[in-house]
């Protein structure tokens, strides 16, 4: 078994006095991808924000490429190659599309040489190649894009740092099914290129079609963790997903 890219052990975090994520373990090899599923409020967004460094770990530990990053801030983690495409896309509306991309290109890298101006330009060109629509709109405001375009910009921005782990929080939220399919087509392409990914979805067969592993969160705890091929049947999955109290309704 290869050395894991990301390894999270016993992660606990929350807001104020309330723990929101409790005792979650997660391990991801280079090029592997995970779907984080769960109902609204299960702690998915909190978990990926914590992995990105936006929330402190209350307990537990986290390593990335063998380095302990438990206490590192989001800035340090970004320079190490962890990239989060946040919930709600969070496009900088006062910046142009191109500026949004440029800000994504973090200048320095730990254990890797800093991205040179040439590299940044190369990545920019690569983004425009991948998303022609962004090239068209590059001098327009980031806030003038449609939802799908914003999602593409958010992913393109996250890719500008040439990350080794891309986390995407609800990529299909608020998008028309056809647009969501385009976004997932893109994610599949990124996976083929060997990028490790964590994809957060409330519930999506699309996500399951993309990933290798699946983790279901409920009430902040990991209630199921399995390779996609070994997932239980739909009814059981639903039961795990929603909790046992509703299982009778499902089976009856």
């Amino acid at each position: 078994m290869p050395e894991p890219l990301l390894s999270v052990h016993g992660l606990v975090t929350g807001y104020g006095p309330n723990a929101v994520v409790e005792q979650v373990d997660l391990s991801l090899c280079p090029g592997e991808s995970v779907a984080l599923l769960g109902v609204n409020g299960a702690g998915k967004t909190t978990l990926v924000s914590t992995i990105a460094g936006l929330n402190p770990l209350w307990s537990g530990s986290m390593t990335f490429r063998g380095d302990t990053v438990t206490k590192a801030g989001p800035e340090a983690r970004a320079t190490m190659g962890i990239s989060l495409c946040p919930e709600g896309r969070q496009i900088f509306t006062s910046l142009t599309v191109e500026e949004n991309l440029l800000i994504g290109a973090t200048p320095s890298r730990r254990r890797r040489p800093a991205a040179t101006a040439a590299q940044v330009q190369e990545r920019l060109a690569r983004s425009y190649e991948r998303f022609p629509i962004l090239k068209e709109r590059r001098h327009g405001g980031g806030g003038q894009l449609s939802g799908g375009e914003q999602q593409m910009l958010a992913i393109a921005r996250a890719l500008m740092s040439a990350p080794e782990l891309l986390m995407v929080d609800e990529p299909s939220m608020g998008l028309a099914p056809a647009v969501a399919s385009t976004v997932y087509g893109l994610l599949r392409e990124l996976k083929r290129e060997g990028l490790a990914m964590i994809v957060v979805e409330e519930s999506s067969n699309r996500a399951l079609g993309l990933v290798d592993q699946c983790i279901v969160l409920r009430g902040g705890r990991s209630v199921l963790s399995a390779p996609v091929g070994e997932l239980p049947d739909h009814a059981t999955l639903l039961e795990v997903y929603l909790g046992s109290s509703t299982s009778e309704e499902v089976t009856s």
């Binding site: 990105a52 936006l54 989001p74 970004a78 500026e99 921005r157």
Partner: peptide
């Protein structure tokens, strides 16, 4: 300049700017 972009990005949304390694 990147510094200026970072400043503007932080002014709009500091939390997201942190994800782009802007302190």
């Amino acid at each position: 300049s990147r510094l200026g972009l970072a400043l503007r990005a932080t002014a709009e949304n500091a939390r997201t700017a942190r994800l782009m390694a802007v302190r």
